[in-house]
Amino acid sequence: KSEISQVFEIALKRNLPVNFEVARESGPPHMKNFVTKVSVGEFVGEGEGKSKKISKKNAAIAVLEEL
């Protein structure tokens, strides 16, 4: 299972809201860097990556460590 689906499963079991959002985009158009924030109830994680998908996955990994 992907880290993102694990976050949603845990949140569902604990009845917590999940929110993913792109917090920052930086860099030139051909080499963008994304920072995504995820919140699961009061737990927050942040991930960085060269694409929105990678930064979302890294944010999920960060919040899984707290859950």
Rank of each mutant, 00 (worst) to 15 (best):
Lys56Leu: 06
Gly45Tyr: 05
Val40His: 01
Glu21Val: 13
Ile4Gln: 02
Phe8Lys: 10
Glu9Tyr: 07
Pro17Lys: 14
Val40Leu: 09
Phe43Gly: 03
Ile4Arg: 02
Ser2Asn: 07
Gly47Pro: 01
Ile61Pro: 04
Ser39Gln: 13
Glu46Trp: 15
Arg14Phe: 08
Phe8Trp: 15
Lys32Asp: 07
Asn15Ser: 10
Arg24Tyr: 08
Leu67Asp: 02
Pro28Val: 07
Gly27Tyr: 05
Ile54Asp: 13
Lys52Asp: 03
Ser5Pro: 04
Phe43Ser: 08
Gly27Pro: 04
Gly47Trp: 00
Lys52Asn: 03
Gln6Trp: 03
Glu9Ala: 12
Ile54Trp: 03
Gly45Gln: 06
His30Arg: 12
Ala62Phe: 01
Pro28Asp: 10
Val44Gly: 06
Gly49Gln: 01
Gly41Val: 00
Val7Phe: 01
Ser51Ala: 04
Lys13Leu: 09
Ile10Ser: 04
Val63Asn: 04
Pro17Gln: 13
Phe43Tyr: 15
Val22Asn: 11
Ala62Arg: 11
Gln6Thr: 09
Lys50Ala: 13
Ile54Val: 12
Glu25Gln: 14
Phe8Thr: 07
Lys56Gln: 07
Gly49Ser: 05
Gln6Phe: 02
Ser55Phe: 00
Glu65Arg: 15
Ser55Asp: 00
Ser39Cys: 12
Lys1Asn: 12
Lys37His: 07
Gln6Lys: 12
Ile61Trp: 03
Gln6Tyr: 03
Lys50Asn: 14
Gln6Arg: 11
Phe34Ile: 06
Glu46Ile: 15
Lys1Ile: 09
Arg14Asp: 05
Glu25Trp: 09
Val7His: 01
Glu42Asn: 14
Gln6Val: 06
Val38Tyr: 01
Lys37Met: 08
Ile4Phe: 04
Lys1Ser: 07
Asn33Arg: 14
Glu3Asn: 06
Arg14Ala: 09
Glu25Val: 13
Glu46Val: 15
Phe43Cys: 08
Glu66Arg: 15
His30Gln: 11
Asn15Asp: 10
Glu48Ser: 14
Gln6Ser: 08
Arg14Pro: 03
Lys52Arg: 11
Leu64Ala: 05
Val35Arg: 15
Lys37Val: 06
Ser2Arg: 06
Glu66Lys: 15
Glu66Leu: 15
Lys52Glu: 08
Gly47Ile: 00
Glu21Ser: 12
Lys1Phe: 03
Ala11Met: 00
Lys53Met: 07
Val35His: 14
His30Leu: 08
Arg24Glu: 13
Pro17Phe: 06
Asn15Gln: 10
Glu65Gln: 13
Ala60Glu: 03
Pro17Leu: 09
Ile61Tyr: 05
Ala23Lys: 12
Gly49Tyr: 00
Leu12Pro: 03
Ile61Gln: 10
Glu66Asn: 14
Ser55Cys: 04
Glu25Arg: 13
Ile61Met: 11
Glu42Phe: 06
Glu46Thr: 15
Lys53Thr: 07
Gly49Lys: 00
Asn33Asp: 06
Ile4Thr: 06
Ser51Arg: 08
Ile54Ala: 12
Val40Phe: 03
Ile4Ser: 05
Pro29Gly: 15
Lys56Ser: 02
Gly47Met: 00
Ala11Glu: 01
Lys50His: 13
Pro28Thr: 10
Asn58Gly: 02
Val18Arg: 02
Phe34Ser: 04
Val44Asn: 10
Ile54Thr: 11
Asn58Lys: 10
Phe34Lys: 02
Phe20Thr: 06
Leu12Cys: 12
Val18Lys: 03
Gln6Gly: 03
Asn33Cys: 10
Gly45His: 03
Val40Tyr: 01
Ser39Phe: 11
Glu21Met: 09
Met31Asn: 15
Leu67Gly: 05
Ala62Asn: 15
Glu48Phe: 14
Val7Arg: 03
Asn58Trp: 00
Lys37Pro: 01
Phe43Ala: 11
Glu65Val: 03
Ile4Lys: 04
Lys37Ala: 07
Leu16Ala: 05
Phe34Ala: 05
Asn15Val: 01
Lys32Arg: 12
Ser2Lys: 13
Glu42Arg: 13
Thr36Phe: 00
Val18Asp: 01
Thr36Ala: 08
Lys32Asn: 09
Leu12His: 13
Val44Ala: 09
Ile61Glu: 08
Leu67Glu: 01
Glu25Met: 14
Lys1Leu: 07
Leu67Ser: 03
Glu42Asp: 10
Ile61Asp: 04
Glu46Ala: 10
Lys50Arg: 14
Ala23Thr: 14
Ser2Pro: 07
Val38Gln: 02
His30Ala: 10
Ser51Thr: 15
Glu21Lys: 13
Ala11Gly: 15
Glu21Asp: 11
Ala59Tyr: 00
Lys53Phe: 10
Arg14Val: 03
Ile4Trp: 06
Leu64Lys: 05
Glu46Pro: 00
Asn58His: 07
His30Glu: 13
Gly47Phe: 00
Leu16Asp: 04
Asn19Arg: 15
Val38Trp: 00
Glu48Gln: 15
Phe8Ser: 06
Glu42Ala: 14
Ser39Trp: 11
Leu67His: 07
Lys52His: 04
Val40Thr: 04
Leu64Gln: 05
Pro29His: 11
Ala23Ile: 14
Pro17Asp: 07
Glu9His: 10
Glu25Phe: 11
Val35Phe: 14
Gly49Cys: 00
Phe34Leu: 02
Ala11His: 00
Gly27Trp: 05
Lys37Phe: 03
Gly49Val: 02
Ser51Lys: 06
Thr36Trp: 00
Ile10Asn: 01
Val22Leu: 14
Ser2Leu: 03
Leu12Ala: 15
Ala23Leu: 14
Val63Ser: 02
Asn19Ile: 10
Arg14Met: 14
Leu12Phe: 12
Phe20Asn: 01
Val40Pro: 05
Ala11Pro: 00
Leu64Glu: 05
Glu3Met: 04
Pro17Ala: 11
Gly41His: 02
Arg24Cys: 13
Ser2Tyr: 02
Glu21Phe: 12
Met31Val: 11
Val35Thr: 13
His30Tyr: 09
Pro17Arg: 13
Thr36Leu: 00
Ala62Thr: 06
Lys37Leu: 07
Ser55Val: 01
Pro29Lys: 12
Asn58Cys: 05
Gly41Phe: 00
Lys13Ser: 09
Pro29Val: 09
Arg24Ile: 10
Val7Gly: 03
Gly49Trp: 00
Lys53Gln: 09
Ala11Phe: 00
Ala60Met: 06
Gly49Leu: 01
Arg14His: 10
Ile61Val: 11
Met31Asp: 15
Leu12Ile: 13
Asn33Tyr: 08
Val38Arg: 02
Phe20Leu: 07
Lys32Trp: 05
Gly47Cys: 00
Val38Gly: 04
Ser39Tyr: 12
Glu3Leu: 08
Lys50Leu: 10
Gln6Leu: 10
Gly41Leu: 00
Phe43Asn: 05
Glu48Gly: 07
Pro28Cys: 10
Lys13His: 10
Val44Arg: 12
Glu3Gly: 04
Lys50Thr: 13
Met31Phe: 08
Ala11Gln: 02
Ile61Leu: 12
Asn33His: 14
Glu46Met: 14
Val40Met: 07
Ala23Asn: 13
Glu46Arg: 15
His30Lys: 14
Phe43Val: 10
Glu25Leu: 12
Ala23Gly: 08
Pro28Asn: 10
Leu12Asp: 13
